[in-house]
Computed example of a mutant assay.
Amino acid sequence: MDFKLDFKIIDAHSHLWLKQDTVVNGLPIYTMENGRSFFMDEVRQMVPPFMIDGKNSAEVFLSNMDYAQVSAAVVTQEYIDGIQNDYLLKVAHKYPDRFFVCGMCEFRRPGYFAQARELIASGFKAIKIPAQRLLLKEGRVYLNCEEMMKMFHYMEEHGIILSIDLADGAIQTGELEEVIKECPNLKVAIGHFAMVTMPDWLEQVKLARYPNVMIESGGITWLFNDEFYPFNGAVKAIKEAADLVGMEKLMWGSDYPRTITAITYKMSYDFVLKSNELSAHEKALFLGKNAEKFYGFKDLVDLPYIKNMSE
């Protein structure tokens, strides 16, 4: 079906890398072949099997985006992919109108404030913290510790966005709320739709009651994978979060490319577009307009609908 949209679609949570080669919690993660990676202690299908070289490149993503009529994407990071700052900076310079990239520091060890300053000086407009990875066996890294707070104040002063994924439920919400109160002008995007399928997920959503805090849905189809398309539970959760904080505080994210091992990229948002549970205005806010305003996207590309051979 050819949807005539009066807004541009923006993906608020995606990933890019050329090669995975890292260690998390003492366990290896590295790219294999046919879209597979060795992931900690087993082989996993990390990307679709037709990506035979394992390269999750900007060009392949752009092809998916163009087909799915997604005008722009926020590229976040996670330690399981390795730190991708060098590649993402090149991507941002090459495709400035299509990608908004987040830098990432080594937050698991002291010294990340200096790294953050270097990333900001190099051109990054956002810093990503995979906070769920900071509950280390050797000692937890708190979001409200001295070095973190120093970094957050610096980010606030320089207009840098904080992109953050939290551990399940309310484990870290108290720490992040202290940061939000201490730095009221720091823009914060909380990922993975507050780990919606886990207990106490609404405690994360409630943080979006603060003016500069948003919730993005990266990974929501992964979290509702057992239910599968058309993800009625995910739509219900979006409505529940909107009732709590308002639809203007919520943004769509795909968690590309991992989620497209199960579904197509377009399916990661069209379950929202085709839902009868949301109004046209709510869909426009969630799928694009909120992210456009929050991240400051300009001159978004207008993408035509390309008819499938199967139609």
Rank of each mutant, 00 (worst) to 15 (best):
V23R: 04
G139F: 03
A116R: 00
V43P: 00
Y112H: 15
L16R: 10
F61A: 11
R98M: 06
E33V: 14
R140N: 08
V23C: 04
D97F: 12
G111Y: 06
D86S: 09
I129W: 03
F124P: 05
E138V: 06
N25K: 13
D41W: 14
Q69A: 07
Y30D: 05
I83S: 02
Q69V: 11
K137D: 11
A116C: 12
H15R: 07
G35T: 06
F124G: 02
D97R: 15
Y30C: 09
P96A: 12
Y112A: 05
F124M: 01
A126D: 07
L134E: 06
A73W: 00
Q84R: 07
I127D: 04
D53G: 06
N85M: 04
F38P: 01
R117G: 03
A131D: 06
F99D: 00
K19I: 05
L143N: 09
S57Y: 10
S37T: 08
F113M: 11
R140S: 04
E33P: 04
F107L: 12
I120F: 03
L134V: 01
R133Y: 10
P48D: 10
Y142K: 14
G111H: 08
Q115Y: 05
A58F: 02
G123L: 00
P110D: 07
D97Y: 15
L89S: 01
E42T: 14
C105I: 03
I83Q: 04
R108P: 01
F113N: 09
M51G: 02
R44N: 05
G26N: 10
I129M: 11
A92N: 00
S71L: 06
R109I: 10
R133A: 14
L89K: 04
F124K: 00
E106Y: 08
W17Q: 02
Q132P: 13
L27T: 04
H93S: 10
D86T: 13
V60H: 01
H15D: 05
P28F: 07
N56G: 12
L136D: 06
F50C: 03
L16D: 03
G103T: 01
N25L: 11
I129L: 12
K94V: 00
S57D: 05
F107R: 05
S57W: 09
H13E: 13
A72I: 01
M46C: 05
P49R: 11
K90P: 00
Q20H: 02
R36T: 14
